[in-house]
């Protein structure tokens, strides 16, 4: 298990996370992620053969709600927090994606 990270490794992970990191952060995270994962390495010593994973501790689901249409969030309210929106058209705005 590689627990030493280079700044280039960190940059690759950052790209997966849509996160732009500066040179300082690349260096610091390379060291810190290595330290944290080296610490987490201790879980490898545990025998987990045949042990099912636990992703959720929900034992019993609440009844699902009836599948009926009902009013949802008002469009203006949904757009009210948008950094950029075309309120008349009722749309969020982002930089041009295509041509």
């Amino acid at each position: 298990m590689p627990t030493a990270f280079t700044p280039a490794d960190v940059a690759r992970i950052a790209a997966l996370a849509n996160l732009e990191l500066d040179a300082d952060e690349l260096d610091i995270f390379a060291r810190q992620l290595g330290e944290i994962l080296a610490y987490a390495e201790q879980v490898q010593q545990i025998d987990t053969i045949g042990v099912p994973p636990t992703a959720s501790v929900v034992m019993r689901h609440a009844a699902d709600r009836a599948d009926q249409t009902r009013p949802s969030l008002d469009r203006d309210a949904a757009l009210a927090n948008a950094p950029d929106a075309a309120l008349d058209a009722g749309l969020f705005k982002v930089p041009r994606v295509i041509g």
């Binding site: 490898q44 987990t48 099912p52 636990t54 992703a55």
Partner: peptide, 13 residues
């Protein structure tokens, strides 16, 4: 598998 799945298995334990 080595980290996330393993952690979930130890969570079971």
């Amino acid at each position: 598998d080595a980290y996330y799945l393993k952690a979930q298995q130890v969570r079971t334990l």
